[in-house]
Design a protein around this nucleic acid. Structure first.
Lengths: 211, 211
DNA sequence: GTCTATACTGTGATAGAC
DNA sequence: GTCTATCACAGTATAGAC
Protein backbone atom coordinates (compact mmCIF):
# COMPACT_ATOMS: atom_id res chain seq x y z
CA UNK A 1 0.00 0.00 0.00
CA UNK A 2 0.89 3.63 -0.07
CA UNK A 3 1.86 3.16 -3.67
CA UNK A 4 2.52 6.11 -5.92
CA UNK A 5 -0.85 7.23 -7.26
CA UNK A 6 -1.45 7.10 -10.97
CA UNK A 7 -0.58 10.69 -11.73
CA UNK A 8 1.77 11.28 -14.60
CA UNK A 9 3.86 14.33 -15.25
CA UNK A 10 1.27 15.87 -17.58
CA UNK A 11 -1.36 16.04 -14.87
CA UNK A 12 1.07 17.73 -12.53
CA UNK A 13 1.99 20.25 -15.20
CA UNK A 14 -1.60 20.99 -16.01
CA UNK A 15 -2.48 21.46 -12.38
CA UNK A 16 0.50 23.76 -11.83
CA UNK A 17 -0.41 25.77 -14.88
CA UNK A 18 -4.01 26.10 -13.77
CA UNK A 19 -2.88 27.20 -10.36
CA UNK A 20 -0.54 29.77 -11.87
CA UNK A 21 -3.27 31.19 -14.07
CA UNK A 22 -5.61 31.54 -11.10
CA UNK A 23 -2.91 33.50 -9.29
CA UNK A 24 -2.58 35.68 -12.39
CA UNK A 25 -6.31 36.37 -12.44
CA UNK A 26 -6.24 37.32 -8.78
CA UNK A 27 -3.27 39.64 -9.27
CA UNK A 28 -4.85 41.28 -12.31
CA UNK A 29 -8.01 41.86 -10.33
CA UNK A 30 -5.99 43.29 -7.44
CA UNK A 31 -4.21 45.74 -9.77
CA UNK A 32 -7.59 46.74 -11.16
CA UNK A 33 -8.99 47.43 -7.71
CA UNK A 34 -5.82 49.29 -6.69
CA UNK A 35 -6.10 51.61 -9.68
CA UNK A 36 -9.80 52.23 -9.08
CA UNK A 37 -9.93 52.47 -5.30
CA UNK A 38 -6.37 53.30 -4.39
CA UNK A 39 -3.71 50.98 -3.07
CA UNK A 40 -5.08 50.88 0.45
CA UNK A 41 -8.61 50.66 -0.92
CA UNK A 42 -8.05 47.08 -2.00
CA UNK A 43 -10.30 44.64 -0.13
CA UNK A 44 -10.18 40.88 -0.44
CA UNK A 45 -13.92 40.74 -1.00
CA UNK A 46 -13.65 43.13 -3.91
CA UNK A 47 -10.78 41.22 -5.48
CA UNK A 48 -12.52 37.89 -4.95
CA UNK A 49 -15.74 39.08 -6.52
CA UNK A 50 -13.92 40.06 -9.73
CA UNK A 51 -12.52 36.57 -10.16
CA UNK A 52 -15.81 34.93 -9.24
CA UNK A 53 -14.83 33.76 -5.79
CA UNK A 54 -15.56 34.34 -2.14
CA UNK A 55 -12.95 36.19 -0.14
CA UNK A 56 -11.73 33.20 1.94
CA UNK A 57 -11.00 31.24 -1.24
CA UNK A 58 -8.18 33.63 -2.03
CA UNK A 59 -6.32 32.07 0.87
CA UNK A 60 -5.92 28.92 -1.20
CA UNK A 61 -3.65 30.94 -3.49
CA UNK A 62 -2.12 33.57 -1.25
CA UNK A 63 -1.18 33.29 2.39
CA UNK A 64 -2.55 36.70 3.28
CA UNK A 65 -3.45 40.09 1.87
CA UNK A 66 0.15 41.17 2.37
CA UNK A 67 1.25 38.21 0.25
CA UNK A 68 -0.83 39.64 -2.60
CA UNK A 69 0.77 43.04 -2.10
CA UNK A 70 4.13 41.29 -2.05
CA UNK A 71 3.53 39.58 -5.39
CA UNK A 72 2.36 42.91 -6.84
CA UNK A 73 5.48 44.60 -5.50
CA UNK A 74 7.76 42.09 -7.19
CA UNK A 75 5.77 42.32 -10.40
CA UNK A 76 5.94 46.11 -10.49
CA UNK A 77 9.70 46.20 -10.05
CA UNK A 78 10.13 43.41 -12.60
CA UNK A 79 8.09 45.49 -15.05
CA UNK A 80 10.22 48.52 -14.38
CA UNK A 81 13.35 46.43 -14.79
CA UNK A 82 12.12 45.43 -18.24
CA UNK A 83 11.40 49.06 -19.16
CA UNK A 84 14.84 50.12 -18.01
CA UNK A 85 16.45 47.36 -20.02
CA UNK A 86 14.64 48.41 -23.19
CA UNK A 87 15.01 52.16 -22.83
CA UNK A 88 18.43 51.88 -21.24
CA UNK A 89 19.76 50.22 -24.38
CA UNK A 90 19.53 53.49 -26.28
CA UNK A 91 20.83 55.66 -23.45
CA UNK A 92 23.32 58.42 -24.26
CA UNK A 93 26.99 57.82 -23.59
CA UNK A 94 27.49 60.98 -21.60
CA UNK A 95 26.48 61.06 -17.96
CA UNK A 96 24.33 64.16 -18.22
CA UNK A 97 22.38 62.77 -21.13
CA UNK A 98 21.98 59.42 -19.41
CA UNK A 99 20.74 61.17 -16.28
CA UNK A 100 18.12 63.01 -18.32
CA UNK A 101 16.98 59.81 -20.03
CA UNK A 102 16.90 57.84 -16.80
CA UNK A 103 14.95 60.47 -14.91
CA UNK A 104 12.39 60.72 -17.72
CA UNK A 105 11.93 56.97 -17.76
CA UNK A 106 11.50 56.82 -14.00
CA UNK A 107 9.17 59.80 -13.81
CA UNK A 108 6.92 58.53 -16.60
CA UNK A 109 6.72 55.05 -15.10
CA UNK A 110 5.96 56.50 -11.69
CA UNK A 111 3.26 58.85 -12.87
CA UNK A 112 1.55 56.30 -15.08
CA UNK A 113 0.17 54.37 -12.09
CA UNK A 114 -0.07 56.11 -8.75
CA UNK A 115 -1.03 52.99 -6.81
CA UNK A 116 1.87 51.07 -8.29
CA UNK A 117 4.32 53.82 -7.38
CA UNK A 118 3.01 53.96 -3.82
CA UNK A 119 3.52 50.23 -3.52
CA UNK A 120 7.01 50.33 -5.02
CA UNK A 121 8.43 53.39 -3.32
CA UNK A 122 6.33 54.67 -0.47
CA UNK A 123 5.33 53.05 2.80
CA UNK A 124 1.61 53.42 2.34
CA UNK A 125 0.37 49.99 3.39
CA UNK A 126 0.53 49.86 7.20
CA UNK A 127 2.29 46.62 8.04
CA UNK A 128 3.67 45.70 4.65
CA UNK A 129 7.33 45.01 3.94
CA UNK A 130 8.41 43.27 0.76
CA UNK A 131 10.02 39.85 0.95
CA UNK A 132 13.63 39.40 -0.10
CA UNK A 133 12.44 37.62 -3.23
CA UNK A 134 10.14 40.44 -4.33
CA UNK A 135 12.77 42.98 -3.46
CA UNK A 136 15.37 41.36 -5.69
CA UNK A 137 14.43 43.12 -8.97
CA UNK A 138 14.45 46.45 -7.16
CA UNK A 139 17.99 45.77 -6.01
CA UNK A 140 19.02 44.71 -9.49
CA UNK A 141 17.65 47.89 -11.04
CA UNK A 142 19.47 50.03 -8.50
CA UNK A 143 22.75 48.21 -8.98
CA UNK A 144 22.46 48.47 -12.74
CA UNK A 145 21.79 52.19 -12.42
CA UNK A 146 24.92 52.72 -10.35
CA UNK A 147 26.91 50.62 -12.85
CA UNK A 148 25.65 52.64 -15.81
CA UNK A 149 26.58 55.88 -14.07
CA UNK A 150 30.02 54.58 -13.14
CA UNK A 151 30.67 53.53 -16.73
CA UNK A 152 29.89 57.06 -17.83
CA UNK A 153 32.41 58.51 -15.45
CA UNK A 154 30.48 59.29 -12.27
CA UNK A 155 33.13 59.95 -9.63
CA UNK A 156 31.10 59.61 -6.44
CA UNK A 157 28.18 57.15 -6.13
CA UNK A 158 26.71 59.37 -3.43
CA UNK A 159 25.99 61.90 -6.14
CA UNK A 160 23.76 59.38 -7.88
CA UNK A 161 21.94 58.75 -4.61
CA UNK A 162 21.30 62.46 -4.51
CA UNK A 163 20.02 62.46 -8.09
CA UNK A 164 17.64 59.63 -7.23
CA UNK A 165 16.42 61.62 -4.24
CA UNK A 166 15.82 64.62 -6.50
CA UNK A 167 13.73 62.62 -8.95
CA UNK A 168 11.88 60.83 -6.18
CA UNK A 169 11.20 64.15 -4.52
CA UNK A 170 9.69 65.57 -7.69
CA UNK A 171 7.55 62.49 -8.20
CA UNK A 172 6.32 62.68 -4.62
CA UNK A 173 5.42 66.35 -5.00
CA UNK A 174 3.65 65.62 -8.25
CA UNK A 175 1.57 62.82 -6.78
CA UNK A 176 0.74 64.78 -3.64
CA UNK A 177 0.16 68.27 -5.00
CA UNK A 178 -0.48 68.20 -8.72
CA UNK A 179 -1.34 64.66 -9.84
CA UNK A 180 -3.19 65.77 -12.96
CA UNK A 181 -0.95 68.69 -13.92
CA UNK A 182 2.57 69.10 -15.24
CA UNK A 183 3.92 71.55 -12.68
CA UNK A 184 6.67 69.20 -11.52
CA UNK A 185 7.16 67.34 -14.79
CA UNK A 186 8.21 70.64 -16.36
CA UNK A 187 10.87 71.08 -13.66
CA UNK A 188 12.43 67.69 -14.26
CA UNK A 189 14.97 68.66 -16.98
CA UNK A 190 15.94 71.77 -15.06
CA UNK A 191 16.45 69.73 -11.88
CA UNK A 192 18.66 67.23 -13.67
CA UNK A 193 20.71 70.02 -15.22
CA UNK A 194 21.16 71.69 -11.85
CA UNK A 195 22.44 68.38 -10.55
CA UNK A 196 24.73 67.87 -13.55
CA UNK A 197 26.06 71.44 -13.32
CA UNK A 198 26.42 71.08 -9.59
CA UNK A 199 28.69 68.04 -9.82
CA UNK A 200 30.70 69.69 -12.58
CA UNK A 201 29.59 67.83 -15.69
CA UNK A 202 30.25 69.58 -19.02
CA UNK A 203 27.35 71.60 -20.41
CA UNK A 204 26.94 69.96 -23.81
CA UNK A 205 27.62 66.52 -25.20
CA UNK A 206 31.38 66.19 -24.95
CA UNK A 207 33.42 65.37 -28.05
CA UNK A 208 35.35 62.16 -28.19
CA UNK A 209 38.80 63.59 -28.87
CA UNK A 210 40.34 65.01 -25.69
CA UNK A 211 42.88 67.19 -27.48
CA UNK B 1 -41.06 81.20 30.76
CA UNK B 2 -38.16 80.31 28.50
CA UNK B 3 -36.16 82.93 30.37
CA UNK B 4 -32.42 83.18 29.90
CA UNK B 5 -30.89 80.65 32.27
CA UNK B 6 -28.71 81.89 35.04
CA UNK B 7 -25.40 81.34 33.31
CA UNK B 8 -22.93 84.17 33.47
CA UNK B 9 -19.88 84.69 31.33
CA UNK B 10 -17.62 82.89 33.79
CA UNK B 11 -19.52 79.68 33.43
CA UNK B 12 -19.31 79.89 29.68
CA UNK B 13 -15.59 80.51 29.88
CA UNK B 14 -15.02 77.66 32.24
CA UNK B 15 -16.99 75.29 30.10
CA UNK B 16 -15.16 76.38 26.98
CA UNK B 17 -11.85 75.94 28.75
CA UNK B 18 -12.81 72.51 30.00
CA UNK B 19 -13.87 71.54 26.51
CA UNK B 20 -10.59 72.78 25.09
CA UNK B 21 -8.56 70.87 27.63
CA UNK B 22 -10.42 67.66 26.86
CA UNK B 23 -9.63 68.14 23.19
CA UNK B 24 -6.00 68.66 24.17
CA UNK B 25 -5.94 65.43 26.16
CA UNK B 26 -7.41 63.53 23.23
CA UNK B 27 -4.90 65.00 20.81
CA UNK B 28 -1.99 64.28 23.13
CA UNK B 29 -3.17 60.70 23.47
CA UNK B 30 -3.52 60.44 19.71
CA UNK B 31 0.06 61.67 19.18
CA UNK B 32 1.22 59.15 21.74
CA UNK B 33 -0.51 56.29 19.97
CA UNK B 34 0.76 57.50 16.59
CA UNK B 35 4.34 57.47 17.81
CA UNK B 36 3.97 54.04 19.39
CA UNK B 37 1.84 52.23 16.82
CA UNK B 38 2.43 54.28 13.70
CA UNK B 39 0.18 56.89 12.15
CA UNK B 40 -2.22 54.37 10.65
CA UNK B 41 -2.06 52.28 13.80
CA UNK B 42 -4.15 54.82 15.68
CA UNK B 43 -7.50 53.39 16.77
CA UNK B 44 -10.23 55.34 18.47
CA UNK B 45 -10.54 52.68 21.15
CA UNK B 46 -6.86 53.01 21.97
CA UNK B 47 -7.00 56.80 22.10
CA UNK B 48 -10.19 56.75 24.18
CA UNK B 49 -8.75 54.32 26.69
CA UNK B 50 -5.80 56.62 27.38
CA UNK B 51 -8.06 59.51 28.25
CA UNK B 52 -10.38 57.29 30.31
CA UNK B 53 -13.25 57.16 27.86
CA UNK B 54 -15.07 54.81 25.54
CA UNK B 55 -14.49 55.15 21.85
CA UNK B 56 -17.88 56.65 20.94
CA UNK B 57 -17.36 59.41 23.51
CA UNK B 58 -14.64 60.91 21.33
CA UNK B 59 -17.40 61.93 18.96
CA UNK B 60 -18.52 64.52 21.49
CA UNK B 61 -15.25 66.33 20.77
CA UNK B 62 -14.35 65.38 17.21
CA UNK B 63 -16.65 64.70 14.31
CA UNK B 64 -14.69 61.71 13.11
CA UNK B 65 -11.32 60.02 13.19
CA UNK B 66 -10.30 62.14 10.21
CA UNK B 67 -11.16 65.25 12.23
CA UNK B 68 -8.61 64.13 14.82
CA UNK B 69 -6.03 63.63 12.09
CA UNK B 70 -6.96 67.05 10.76
CA UNK B 71 -6.36 68.75 14.10
CA UNK B 72 -3.04 66.91 14.39
CA UNK B 73 -2.10 68.02 10.89
CA UNK B 74 -2.74 71.66 11.70
CA UNK B 75 -0.88 71.35 14.98
CA UNK B 76 2.17 69.78 13.35
CA UNK B 77 2.47 72.52 10.75
CA UNK B 78 1.88 75.19 13.38
CA UNK B 79 4.72 73.68 15.40
CA UNK B 80 6.98 73.68 12.39
CA UNK B 81 6.02 77.27 11.62
CA UNK B 82 7.14 78.18 15.13
CA UNK B 83 10.46 76.36 14.69
CA UNK B 84 11.05 78.10 11.38
CA UNK B 85 10.30 81.48 12.93
CA UNK B 86 12.79 80.90 15.75
CA UNK B 87 15.59 79.34 13.72
CA UNK B 88 14.86 81.49 10.68
CA UNK B 89 15.61 84.61 12.72
CA UNK B 90 19.31 83.76 12.77
CA UNK B 91 19.48 82.58 9.16
CA UNK B 92 22.49 83.62 7.06
CA UNK B 93 22.12 86.50 4.63
CA UNK B 94 23.47 84.61 1.66
CA UNK B 95 21.19 82.26 -0.23
CA UNK B 96 23.51 79.27 -0.04
CA UNK B 97 23.90 79.59 3.69
CA UNK B 98 20.18 80.08 4.16
CA UNK B 99 19.50 76.99 2.06
CA UNK B 100 21.81 74.95 4.25
CA UNK B 101 20.17 76.21 7.43
CA UNK B 102 16.67 75.71 6.11
CA UNK B 103 17.33 72.18 4.91
CA UNK B 104 18.89 71.23 8.25
CA UNK B 105 15.89 72.59 10.12
CA UNK B 106 13.45 70.75 7.89
CA UNK B 107 15.36 67.48 7.92
CA UNK B 108 15.74 67.46 11.71
CA UNK B 109 12.08 68.26 12.27
CA UNK B 110 11.03 65.56 9.80
CA UNK B 111 13.24 62.87 11.26
CA UNK B 112 12.36 63.63 14.86
CA UNK B 113 8.86 62.17 14.48
CA UNK B 114 8.15 59.80 11.64
CA UNK B 115 4.40 59.63 12.23
CA UNK B 116 4.19 63.41 12.28
CA UNK B 117 6.12 63.69 9.01
CA UNK B 118 3.91 61.12 7.35
CA UNK B 119 0.86 63.09 8.39
CA UNK B 120 2.33 66.40 7.25
CA UNK B 121 3.89 65.42 3.96
CA UNK B 122 2.88 61.98 2.78
CA UNK B 123 -0.49 60.54 1.86
CA UNK B 124 -0.44 57.65 4.27
CA UNK B 125 -3.94 57.84 5.73
CA UNK B 126 -6.33 56.38 3.13
CA UNK B 127 -9.13 58.93 2.83
CA UNK B 128 -7.62 61.87 4.66
CA UNK B 129 -7.24 65.33 3.20
CA UNK B 130 -6.51 68.31 5.42
CA UNK B 131 -9.11 71.05 5.76
CA UNK B 132 -8.33 74.52 4.47
CA UNK B 133 -7.99 75.72 8.04
CA UNK B 134 -5.42 73.12 9.00
CA UNK B 135 -3.61 73.63 5.75
CA UNK B 136 -3.17 77.34 6.36
CA UNK B 137 0.05 77.20 8.42
CA UNK B 138 1.58 74.93 5.79
CA UNK B 139 0.82 77.53 3.15
CA UNK B 140 2.24 80.29 5.34
CA UNK B 141 5.50 78.41 5.88
CA UNK B 142 5.88 77.81 2.17
CA UNK B 143 5.18 81.43 1.28
CA UNK B 144 7.60 82.65 3.91
CA UNK B 145 10.25 80.31 2.54
CA UNK B 146 9.86 81.67 -0.98
CA UNK B 147 9.96 85.21 0.39
CA UNK B 148 13.18 84.55 2.33
CA UNK B 149 14.81 83.09 -0.76
CA UNK B 150 13.70 85.99 -2.95
CA UNK B 151 15.11 88.49 -0.44
CA UNK B 152 18.45 86.72 -0.72
CA UNK B 153 18.50 87.05 -4.47
CA UNK B 154 16.93 83.85 -5.78
CA UNK B 155 16.22 84.53 -9.43
CA UNK B 156 13.75 81.75 -10.24
CA UNK B 157 11.24 80.46 -7.67
CA UNK B 158 11.17 77.15 -9.55
CA UNK B 159 14.69 76.57 -8.31
CA UNK B 160 13.45 76.69 -4.74
CA UNK B 161 10.73 74.18 -5.62
CA UNK B 162 13.52 71.94 -6.83
CA UNK B 163 15.49 72.42 -3.62
CA UNK B 164 12.43 71.48 -1.60
CA UNK B 165 12.01 68.36 -3.72
CA UNK B 166 15.65 67.47 -3.07
CA UNK B 167 15.26 67.77 0.69
CA UNK B 168 11.93 65.98 0.68
CA UNK B 169 13.45 63.24 -1.43
CA UNK B 170 16.27 62.72 1.04
CA UNK B 171 13.85 62.64 3.96
CA UNK B 172 11.67 60.10 2.18
CA UNK B 173 14.67 57.88 1.44
CA UNK B 174 15.80 58.18 5.03
CA UNK B 175 12.44 57.20 6.46
CA UNK B 176 11.97 54.34 4.00
CA UNK B 177 15.46 52.87 3.81
CA UNK B 178 17.55 53.94 6.77
CA UNK B 179 15.31 55.36 9.51
CA UNK B 180 17.82 54.70 12.29
CA UNK B 181 20.99 55.54 10.39
CA UNK B 182 22.59 58.67 9.00
CA UNK B 183 23.18 57.55 5.43
CA UNK B 184 21.01 60.29 3.97
CA UNK B 185 21.58 62.88 6.65
CA UNK B 186 25.27 62.84 5.70
CA UNK B 187 24.35 63.62 2.10
CA UNK B 188 22.26 66.66 2.97
CA UNK B 189 25.02 69.33 2.89
CA UNK B 190 26.45 67.88 -0.31
CA UNK B 191 23.00 67.88 -1.92
CA UNK B 192 22.40 71.51 -1.00
CA UNK B 193 25.81 72.50 -2.35
CA UNK B 194 25.17 70.70 -5.61
CA UNK B 195 21.95 72.66 -5.89
CA UNK B 196 23.68 75.95 -5.01
CA UNK B 197 26.52 75.29 -7.45
CA UNK B 198 24.04 74.16 -10.06
CA UNK B 199 22.09 77.41 -10.01
CA UNK B 200 25.32 79.39 -10.03
CA UNK B 201 25.58 80.68 -6.48
CA UNK B 202 29.05 81.81 -5.37
CA UNK B 203 31.07 79.20 -3.50
CA UNK B 204 31.77 81.13 -0.31
CA UNK B 205 29.96 83.89 1.50
CA UNK B 206 30.05 86.70 -1.03
CA UNK B 207 31.57 90.04 -0.17
CA UNK B 208 29.39 93.08 -0.24
CA UNK B 209 31.36 95.21 -2.70
CA UNK B 210 30.65 94.18 -6.27
CA UNK B 211 33.75 95.80 -7.75
C1' DG C 1 -23.13 68.95 26.54
C1' DT C 2 -20.78 64.69 27.98
C1' DC C 3 -20.58 60.18 28.33
C1' DT C 4 -22.07 55.08 28.02
C1' DA C 5 -24.18 50.93 26.07
C1' DT C 6 -25.51 48.83 22.17
C1' DA C 7 -25.38 47.69 17.60
C1' DC C 8 -24.58 48.05 12.56
C1' DT C 9 -21.40 47.48 8.69
C1' DG C 10 -17.16 46.15 6.77
C1' DT C 11 -12.41 44.33 7.34
C1' DG C 12 -8.78 40.32 7.31
C1' DA C 13 -8.53 35.85 8.82
C1' DT C 14 -9.73 30.88 10.43
C1' DA C 15 -12.36 26.26 10.76
C1' DG C 16 -14.57 22.76 8.82
C1' DA C 17 -18.04 20.69 5.50
C1' DC C 18 -18.28 19.25 0.73
C1' DG D 1 -10.18 24.31 -3.91
C1' DT D 2 -14.10 26.39 -2.84
C1' DC D 3 -17.76 27.06 0.00
C1' DT D 4 -20.46 28.78 4.47
C1' DA D 5 -20.16 30.27 9.06
C1' DT D 6 -17.89 32.72 12.26
C1' DC D 7 -14.43 35.52 14.74
C1' DA D 8 -12.11 39.73 16.39
C1' DC D 9 -11.52 44.20 15.40
C1' DA D 10 -12.28 48.52 13.10
C1' DG D 11 -15.18 53.21 12.57
C1' DT D 12 -19.32 55.06 13.69
C1' DA D 13 -24.54 55.90 14.22
C1' DT D 14 -28.08 56.07 17.69
C1' DA D 15 -30.59 56.22 22.02
C1' DG D 16 -30.62 57.47 26.42
C1' DA D 17 -28.60 58.30 31.31
C1' DC D 18 -26.82 62.14 33.83
Amino acid sequence: MLDTPNVDRFDVDRRARRRESTRREILDAAWEVARESGLTGVTLRDVAERVGMRAPSLYSHFESKHAIYDAMFGEAWADYERVVRVEGAGAPDDLRGAAHAMSRTFFDFAVADHARYQLMNERVVPGFEPSAESYAPAVRVLEATYAVAAERGLADPDDLTILLAIIGGLVAQHLANDPDGDRYERLLPRAVDIWADGIGLPRTTPEKDPA
